[in-house]
């Protein structure tokens, strides 16, 4: 889908300022290059032929806002993406977490929930799920509903099953879901310890203390300043000796956190050491 090039840089500023003032959703510190693509994309799929049309709809139809927010944020995710990352969680992180009487995990920017379910499966296999709680949060209520349904396209299962195996999984992956025509339903016992809630990384504050925070391929959509403020939010939300996990091309290097955290192996997992 080759989107048209309707939106200009100055349009973006204007629209984002309007949206922040009118609705309290602040996207002004999102990466402009990616946002511009999302805005052009929404013009294509919702058939706006000009910036003025898009702006009119957003500003005068509050019921359109949820769709707008969902479409300009990227909601593409995978189960067990980067299998080596999950392997490190299994081998390096979970044995440590196992020493706690109670484990709290935050999946920040969980989108449609694929990572939260991956984590649930790992916790089950490490025999830690019964004493864990997974907080899965996202800015979009719509994607959280899909996450909580536990229903995913069957077309993805071959990839997920392969990822699972490469992450060190030894079970038959299909034992975790029931297939149903073109979709699969993950078993309800996987979400017994999941809490889905909206949370905006830009404006909402810390709501608990965690031993592990995962925020993978979310910060790439933020500018550096916003990335740093989110790092601060994670820092105050992490217990001493807690773990922070980012996407494979994201880093806390060059941020304030760098000196207080130690990277675990080759993966993008850092331990809070002071």
């Amino acid at each position: 889908m080759w989107e048209p090039n309707i939106i200009k840089n100055e349009d973006i500023e204007l629209l984002l300022t309007d949206v922040a003032e009118r609705y309290g959703y602040d996207f002004t510190q999102y990466s402009k290059a990616s946002l511009k693509r999302r805005l052009n994309r929404i013009c294509l799929i919702d058939k706006f032929s000009s910036f003025a049309e898009l702006r009119y709809r957003v500003m005068n139809h509050p019921e359109y806002l949820q769709r707008f927010v969902e479409e300009i944020t990227v909601n593409v995710t995978e189960m067990f993406r980067d299998p080596n990352f999950y392997k490190s969680l299994r081998e390096e992180v979970f044995p440590r977490l196992g020493t706690y009487p109670f484990i709290r995990i935050w999946v920040a920017g969980c989108s449609t929930g694929e990572e939260a379910y991956s984590i649930a499966i790992l916790l089950k296999e490490a025999n830690l799920y019964h004493k864990s709680l997974i907080y899965a949060t996202d800015i979009n209520p719509g994607v959280l509903e899909r996450a909580s349904s536990g229903i995913f396209p069957i077309s993805q299962m071959q990839l997920y099953s392969e990822n699972y195996r490469l992450s060190g999984g030894i079970e038959d992956f299909s034992k975790y879901y029931t297939a149903n025509y073109d979709s699969v339903q993950f078993h309800h016992n996987l979400k017994e310890k999941m809490i889905f809630s909206t949370h905006n990384l830009v404006s909402d504050s810390s709501f608990n203390a965690f031993q592990l925070i995962l925020c993978r391929n979310v910060l790439i959509y933020f500018d550096k300043e916003l990335q740093n403020s989110v790092f601060d939010l994670f820092d105050i939300s992490l217990d001493a000796l807690g773990y922070l996990a980012l996407g494979s091309k994201e880093t806390i290097r060059f941020s304030k956190l760098e000196k207080q955290y130690k990277q675990i192996g080759d993966e993008r997992i850092w331990k809070k050491i002071r």
Binding site: S31, K32, A33, I220, Y221, D223
Partner: peptide, 21 residues
């Protein structure tokens, strides 16, 4: 450009990655 990401220029020196469709 790493596998499985799109790459965008923020300006003449700074680059961003993107995991969209």
């Amino acid at each position: 450009v790493p596998p499985n990401y799109h790459m965008l220029f923020e300006n003449k020196t700074l680059v961003s990655l993107d995991f969209s469709e």
